[in-house]
Write a protein that binds this DNA or RNA. Structure first.
Length: 607
DNA sequence: AAAAAAT
């Protein structure tokens, strides 16, 4: 109890924290290597974290200082659960039960139970794969095509059968094809790229090393085999956590780099061995410029949430990383791109980064919405607090699962979480004015169930995969119906059921029409007051969405369109604001829009 | 109004 209070004090008090910066442990290192539990046991290998590599084995051990004072007493030793590649063979590390408990969780963990996913719901997700010679999807996790060790790790992670993305991505990668996938978080896409790519690498081993440069090799520079780029720090950290699980006992050592955390620590970690690198573009560029990373050995390049990366202005950096450094060319590597939407700039990126790829379009988990019960309440602004209290105390949510509350402003996030704490609801908050560590801490409290109520601004609306969210409350509704869809999508994930509650009043009238359509589409009850409000708000903006194709909204393989290939900017498609236009995003339009149609209202997203 | 990313 007092521990929670203490953490919450640290969060809510705005003193910049008594927690001094030097004590900050980044999320991926908590309970992990670097802590004293992982102190050098001195038993294995040389200085390189015990990662033996046949052409290394001779004369290694001494080079980096033997064991004890390794890395200036930081207590870092060989990475636990680290296997090796010796003489062309994969030598997995022995099982480490203590580590397994830490990594894969214990039955007491709230997330452990909930991983009893309702996988049957996945089977309803529509998938479309197009391109030349699309390989047959797999139906089970088996070896072949997947590596035995990977299968064990998948089992430890309690994934029992492949999600639709994974069914396709596994054979696509093992057939050495590139992939462009329209899929969202929650569809199992992290496994979708990690499984096949790790599996391949487990079997083929590290890239051959030029013997002449071997002394220099990896001394100050990391040569990853797999690079995963994603837009946000939290996402990158999440992917890294997954990667650690699946790479357990293998020869591959995952690393993560992102801004806001100590770069020296990251560089030291890289030197210990980096075979799979998960990175945000900014920090990666930085490390590339410093010469700490070489991309020359990349076999697999993965871009996750590519559309968000472009929205956030990362395109120049991404292009520089992929085309302007020492990354092997399109033909010498395999590339997988994931994106929720498929606007023109993503198509152009795909054209440059991918070759002869398979286009995979995956519908949204729960797009049929049976697993999300949407509840809309008429609540005036000044009643919101008390109605919220009623809801929180009348449901079992707080005990059973996690409640995510969305508000409009950062200030409201603070106010409301403080208010809830004073009413004995264990709440915390996340928004852009909090420091990175506060945000990560809040997220940790939330995920662990220590603070099962999280008050959030739009920062948490997309991308974060928080299992076990049973209830999403739209305390303040977003201005855009697409944002609403993303928000309620934080619950009912991975086939589980969830409730979404929205507070609506006249202030939300521009959203009401879209909301009604959505509820109707999803077979949800449309309360009378909502229809009444809708009739009231007759002015302006008739019909919110031109063409929401609803549950059949696939991304489209534009290569079939007569408009292919797309031209850079302007030209045929008419400029749309922000470049968020995409053609074929919805079957509603049939084929790609004709040249002078300007679909301002066609929505910037599909789901 | 809010958000994201290298310092």
């Amino acid at each position: 109890m007092s521990e929670l209070e203490d953490s919450m004090n640290n969060l809510n008090v705005n003193e910049g924290g008594r927690q001094s910066k030097s004590n900050y442990v980044p999320p991926h290192r908590r309970n992990g290597q670097g802590s004293s539990a992982f102190a050098n046991n001195g038993s294995r290998g040389g200085g390189f974290g015990g990662r033996g590599r046949d052409n290394f084995s001779a004369g290694r051990g001494g080079g980096r200082g033997n064991g004890m004072n390794f890395r200036g007493g930081r207590g870092r030793g060989p990475t636990r659960g680290q296997g090796r590649w010796v003489q062309g063979k994969h030598v997995p590390a022995p099982k480490d039960e203590e580590l397994e408990l830490k990594m894969f969780g214990t039955p007491e963990d709230p997330s452990f139970q909930s991983s009893g996913l309702n996988f049957d719901n996945y089977d309803d997700i529509p998938v479309e794969a197009t391109g030349e010679d699309v390989p047959e999807p797999i139906t089970q996790f088996t070896s072949p095509p997947l590596d035995e060790l990977l299968l064990e790790n998948i089992k430890l992670s309690r994934f029992t059968k492949p999600t639709p993305v994974q069914k396709y991505s596994v054979p696509i990668v093992s057939n050495h094809r590139d992939l462009m996938a329209c899929a969202q978080t929650g569809s199992g896409k992290t496994g979708g790229f990690l499984f096949p790519v790790l599996s391949e690498c487990f079997q083929t081993g590290p890239a051959p090393i030029e013997v002449e440069s071997e002394t220099v090799f990896r001394k100050h520079r990391a040569y990853p085999t797999i690079l995963v780029m994603a837009p946000t720090r939290e996402l990158v950290s999440q992917i890294y956590d997954e990667a650690k699980k699946f790479a357990y006992r293998s020869w591959m050592r995952p690393c993560v780099v992102y801004g806001g955390a100590n770069i020296r620590d990251q560089m030291e970690d890289l030197i210990l061995g980096c075979d799979l690198l998960v990175a945000t573009p900014g920090r990666l560029s930085d490390l590339l410029e410093r010469g700490k990373i070489s991309l020359a050995k990349i076999k697999y390049l993965i871009l996750d949430e590519a559309d968000r990366m472009l929205d956030m202005g990362f395109e120049p950096q991404i292009r520089h990383i992929v085309q302007g450094c020492d990354m092997p060319s399109v033909n010498e590597r395999h590339t997988l791109m994931f994106s929720a939407t498929f606007p023109r700039d993503i198509q152009l990126l795909a054209k440059d980064f991918l070759k002869d790829y398979i286009f995979l379009s995956v519908g949204r988990v729960g797009s049929t919405s049976e697993n999300i019960t949407q509840r809309v309440l008429s609540v005036e602004d000044d009643e919101k607090k008390s109605v919220l209290l009623d809801i929180l105390s009348s449901t079992d949510d707080v005990k059973e699962g996690l409640t995510l509350i969305f508000v409009e402003t950062k200030r409201m996030a603070d106010t409301l979480s403080h208010f809830l704490v004073t009413r004995n609801f264990p709440a915390t908050s996340i928004h852009g004015d909090r420091t990175q560590q506060e945000r990560e801490h809040a997220l940790h409290l939330f995920k662990s169930g220590a603070a099962p109520i999280l008050v959030a601004t739009a920062v948490a609306a997309r991308g974060l995969d928080i299992p076990n969210v049973t209830h999403v409350v739209n305390y303040d509704l977003p201005a855009d119906i697409d944002d609403y869809v993303h928000r309620i999508g934080r619950t009912g994930r991975a086939g589980n059921v969830g409730i979404a509650t929205a507070f609506v009043n006249r202030g939300n009238k521009n959203l009401i029409k879209g909301l009604i359509e959505l509820l109707t589409e999803a077979n949800q009850e449309v309360p009378q007051f909502l229809s009444a409000l809708s009739r009231e708000a007759t002015v302006g903006r008739g019909g919110s969405r031109g063409g929401r194709g609803g549950r059949n909204a696939y991304g489209k393989d534009f290569r079939r369109s007569s408009n292919y290939p797309p031209q850079p900017s302007s030209q045929a498609y008419g400029r749309t604001n922000g470049g968020s236009n995409y053609f074929g995003g919805s079957n509603f339009y049939g084929s790609a829009p004709s040249s002078n149609t300007t679909h301002q209202s066609s929505g910037s997203d599909w789901w």
